[in-house]
């Protein structure tokens, strides 16, 4: 059974159809890259998978581990293992990062009927993960993403990914706004999470990221559809010739 199956998905936002019948299958252990011009619907797809309000699914379905994802509330999806690393992570003033991590982790565990982490176990885990991502402990005492640099925010997303151990990680332009070093640290963090049980969907505009996170499949989206799929060489091809050739196909 596929981990994620998106079939003929049609999505409307404010009466306007954005996705016009999109199909995508992701199996456990695979890394998929999604590329495509601005406005082609990449973020929309990730939002619909995560369950962001405001999108109307008019047709098609999304199965996650064989279950109907669209029937689940967004927090249920998170507890089941869907993780979305946001392109622009928000700030939550007054809520210490540490408190947030713990509240979220325990909420997920509770939803799965697992016991809450004890304080020492939790702290140990956070320390390990944040160390590997070069995140200083001080940062975890600050409000969630408050005053974090662009790179720090992205690392904080990867930190949460590592902590929550989701089975599907969707990374929406995690490379935007990162310098080369920050990109490498974040990508190393992502690669460390790669496992036969976990799949990654990496949304990006640049082939550069895919040098660090090497995809098994590359999909090109245009105007709300996947118009071409291939291996990692497809990304190189795009880098050279651009999206123009696919726009017509769409």
């Amino acid at each position: 059974m596929a981990l994620l199956e998106v079939k003929d998905l049609k999505v409307r936002v404010e009466e306007r159809e954005i996705l016009h019948g999109l199909t995508l299958t992701v199996n456990e252990g695979e890394i998929h890259a999604i590329m495509g011009p601005n406005g082609s619907g990449k973020s929309t797809l990730s939002h619909v998978i995560a369950g962001k309000p405001g999108y109307e699914v008019t047709d098609g379905q999304i199965l996650f581990k064989g279950e109907d994802l669209l029937e689940m509330s967004p927090d249920e999806r998170a507890a089941k293992g869907v993780f979305l690393a946001f392109q622009y992570p928000v700030e939550i003033p007054g809520v210490a990062t540490m408190t947030f991590l713990r509240t979220a982790l325990n909420a997920q565990r509770k939803a799965r009927g697992e016991s809450e982490y004890s304080t020492p176990d939790f702290l140990k885990k956070v320390r390990e993960v944040s160390k590997s991502l070069n995140i200083p402990q001080d940062m975890l005492k600050r409000g969630v993403n408050v005053g974090f640099s662009g790179g720090e925010k992205k690392r904080n997303e990867v930190l949460q990914m590592a902590l929550f151990e989701p089975s599907l990680c969707i990374l929406d332009e995690m490379d935007s706004g990162l310098d080369i070093d920050a990109l490498r640290i974040a990508a190393d963090g992502v690669n460390a999470l790669h496992s036969p049980k976990r799949a990654m969907v990496v949304i990006t505009h640049y082939q550069r990221l895919l040098n660090y996170i090497v995809p098994d499949f590359v999909h090109v989206m245009s105007k709300g559809r996947v118009v071409k799929s291939g291996g990692k060489e497809l990304a190189l091809e795009l880098e050279e010739s651009g999206y123009a050739q696919f726009e017509d196909a769409a």
Binding site: D75, A79, V90, F100, Q160
Partner: peptide
């Protein structure tokens, strides 16, 4: 902010827990 709420919910909090958390931060 809807975006802040959705961020929290995407990380596993229920809608109400998310509101509670954001307000408690405030």
């Amino acid at each position: 902010s809807e975006d802040v709420l959705f961020y929290c919910i995407q990380r596993g909090l229920t809608q109400e827990e998310a509101v509670g958390l954001v307000v408690n931060g405030f």
